[in-house]
Write a protein that binds this DNA or RNA. Sequence first.
DNA 1: CTCATTCTCTGACTAAGGTCAGAGAATGAC
DNA 2: GTCATTCTCTGACCTTAGTCAGAGAATGAG
Lengths: 299, 299
Amino acid sequence: MTKEQVEQVRRFSRTTAERIGVLHEHHLGGTRPYGQARLLWQLGDDGGPHDVRTVRDRLGLDSGYLSRLLRALEGDGLVALAPHPDDRRVRTVRLTEAGRRERARLDERSDAHAAALLAPLSPDRRTELTDAMAKVERLLTAATVTLDPLDPDHPDAAYCLRAYAAELAELFAEGFDLAASLLPDPEALRAPRGLFLVARLHGEPVGCGGLKLPPGAPAEIKRLWVRPSARGLGLARRLLAELEERAARHGAGAVRLDTHRALTAATRLYRESGYTEVPAFNDEPYAHHWFEKRTGDMA
Amino acid sequence: MTKEQVEQVRRFSRTTAERIGVLHEHHLGGTRPYGQARLLWQLGDDGGPHDVRTVRDRLGLDSGYLSRLLRALEGDGLVALAPHPDDRRVRTVRLTEAGRRERARLDERSDAHAAALLAPLSPDRRTELTDAMAKVERLLTAATVTLDPLDPDHPDAAYCLRAYAAELAELFAEGFDLAASLLPDPEALRAPRGLFLVARLHGEPVGCGGLKLPPGAPAEIKRLWVRPSARGLGLARRLLAELEERAARHGAGAVRLDTHRALTAATRLYRESGYTEVPAFNDEPYAHHWFEKRTGDMA
DNA sequence: CTCATTCTCTGACTAAGGTCAGAGAATGAC
DNA sequence: GTCATTCTCTGACCTTAGTCAGAGAATGAG
């Protein structure tokens, strides 16, 4: 990363903080303090009542602080509190009619501010700006995704594996059965015999990739998957690169993988990433192509 | 402007506030409160001592508040205060050696945060992101520019006119003398006979454009200029459009202007904006092309 | 029934950012 | 020299955001 790039990010931060950050903290709040506005926002996301506990977790607030925020909103008649029907320790909260109106007002304010930002620009420039914003947003989101090695039994890992299997079952003409696929046991993707990476965005799993590390043999990538909603962020490439790097660090001289002919995007990714097609090195029933890349060839 | 564009701006605000706004307020501050950090930043921009009054204006702070901030920094040995040599009511402030070190520390922190933001991305994506950021920044800056009608004698207007003349003098092989140019007197660009628009960014003049409004005749655009540092923001187009609109509102059926052959970018702008070349309609000594646009043809 | 736990609420407290009304010193116009 | 003005500083005050240590009610395990 160059010094110019770091400088650009900082300049960008300054400019946008001035024009947008301020918007968020003060003007969105408008007449209402930011904490209250944020809460109002969170509560309005759907109609139904919310457990106070859940709201607290989601916004990461102190229980005393949330309690006071709720009381302020209740005092203004914007929310109604009621004990949870099944557990009377828990309280539930929902927006009143006035609360929904207030939320709509905040919404309009936000829209107006966004519109005022665009207003001085010509239609062409507006399109240019919103396109560039979309790009920045997409790439910032991509940069927010974390990759962590997890146990394959971890709920987030298990979620990915189930989603992976479900998607392949849909995609393959012959269906897909995780149990029939060549992966002797989950042990193979767990230290010390391998590892399993999970990509998460705001704590939500959005992708995964497994690595088998047989001693004295090429490493093998399995179960590489990215959730459809998170595609286009370069996540598959990042997972692949991270797995390759870990394989190399583990001393593997090459990385291998196999893939199904229906997965054209994946096949393209492997070729673009420097993999070359090799003869079948296993009996995977769902594979049509086998690839290999020497760890020395890595970018 | 479409609903989708407004939505995009708002989504963008949310994402960047999360990733960058927070960065700015809390992490940039680090151990130091935001107000102090901001002040430290401002003071470090150049070596010399600053008048407290100037700093206050530039940061838009209350005098009591700034006084306290300064005292806090002074207490930590980061700034030194001294009375102004010419006016002992005014105090000047400069960073001490320790202050410069502290500022460098904040700087590093900021750099590190920016770098951490880019780190998870591949080099290609990094370039994509910083390019998109540059574009957003440029367009947000453009959207921040205000256009105000000012008296031609207003300091900001006078600055623009001087800069305009100086630039043309440099550009034209034959030189340029504002007095020799066809513009009988400044009255012509002042209500009710005309008007003079000044474009300002953060209060600094960055461009201008004059309009003559002779009764019962086409309006005439004069002195259209954009400061070199502010070019590429679409400012000339905006000034032009605003002048045309004011001409139309004033009842002019057409807008005319003349230009020098050395000003190729301007000539291109006029053609692209729907102006057609017409025979000379005046004796402007510095003109080689004459243009006209009917107000009915405006976009 | 007992007891540890869970959930909410209250009171006490802190830090930061900020506003407002003067006080006091210096200055400039006359 | 007088007097209005300018500039800084001080004290009093306010709001927001947030933390922390319990108290008190309800719940679930034993």
